[in-house]
Design a protein around this nucleic acid. Sequence first.
RNA 1: GGGGGGAUGUCCGAGUGGUUAAAGGAGACGGGCUGUAAACCCGUUGGCUCUGCCUACGCAGGUUCGAAUCCUGCUCCCCCCA
Length: 396
Amino acid sequence: MAPADDLLRNAHQSLPEGGLAKKLEVAAKEGRQLRVKLGLDPTAPDIHLGHTVVLQKLREFQDLGHRVVLIVGDYTARVGDPSGRSSTRPVLSGEQIDANAETYRRQAFTVLRDDPELLEVRRNGEWLDMPAADLFALARVATVAQILERDDFAKRFAARQPISVLETLYPLLQGYDSVAIASDVELGGTDQTFNLLLGRDVQRAYGQPEQVILTMPILPGIDGTEKMSKSLGNHVGVTEPADEQFGKTMRLPDDAMDAWFSLLSLPDPGTDASPRDRKRALARGVVARFHGDDAARAAEQRFDALFVSHAVPDDVESFPLSPAPGEAVHLPALIAEAFGRSRSDARRLLEQGGVKLDGEVVASDAYDLPASELDGRVLQVGKRHFRRLVAGPSAA
RNA sequence: GGGGGGAUGUCCGAGUGGUUAAAGGAGACGGGCUGUAAACCCGUUGGCUCUGCCUACGCAGGUUCGAAUCCUGCUCCCCCCA
């Protein structure tokens, strides 16, 4: 398969048509690397699977010898990208942005190759802190009508929701990033299409060859419908423990498996396999990518023990029973403390039969139990929250 | 500068003097079913020293036996006209 076709395999769209193949050709002829750009939003430091879709694509470019240029949007973060937002974003402090950018960078290496020949990290504060006259020149590149073409602006405009002047500048600033680093290709999610295309206009206005844009489909979250995002709470983080990643993936609706296999570029047993086995393969693949094969197998075993055999895990965190032996323990208080819930919540759990001791449901009216009856036993809330109770403060 | 609309529980959103801890929905949590699928069904969803008490409807004060609901001031947000 030609490199361009390969790169476009699971992509959403690349514009202009055939542009990528041409860029690759020219680069090969001139014996140079393509400069492949990705803008990062330093307001969301925790990378999840959704982010890795684009990172994975960048990795493919790296594997072909091209140079990835990550742009940390420290300066544009002051503006706030309105993409997919119905309202303006809060402004972050400089220190927060720095810290977030560093975290992001570190996590991005779970996917990208950290090779100075293949990776360049820049901050757009380097060039966007420009005199007003230069900003005017940039602002002349596009018209208000053009900017309002953008999907979310158009929607907000129609719905009479506020659009700040500052926000309308964002696409131009992002486009200027492309000029500053002489981008050949820019990647992004489909929600970035407008911004990426405008980058071409900006480059043209500044007398530069226009970049090719490549958009990747949006990965659905573990709810199977919404875009994966931390704020929706439907994400799987790359730094999450193996068990969490495995369990969350297993909760994915069947319909979403195709998208996950394709976009995450994981080996797919195919639809011949039973949905259950296929999802297990998916979960293993996810965990293996970030924690390794051994961890993936171990996670699957623990998953089976917990949810298939309903066994109490052997590595349960212990929780100290504070009263002296013989004294009564107030169960709602214990549950509240051990699992970080309110006492009212704990009472409800008891009433609904959601509390178990060593696998036995605790009677709903058992509010006080002697410590001696609890010592050494495993307290369970719901299906997957456990604490081993240990008497005496010394055990803490 | 002028005019109008709005701020309710995690979110959305009803409610314009009294049986309102506040309809409905979403989300979340617990249970059932199961492949921990999803979907679906049932229940719960402010806190606590829990047959009761406390706190809550932007903030502060007032009217009233009684206010999320009325009045006054303040803060913030949105829209329209100029």
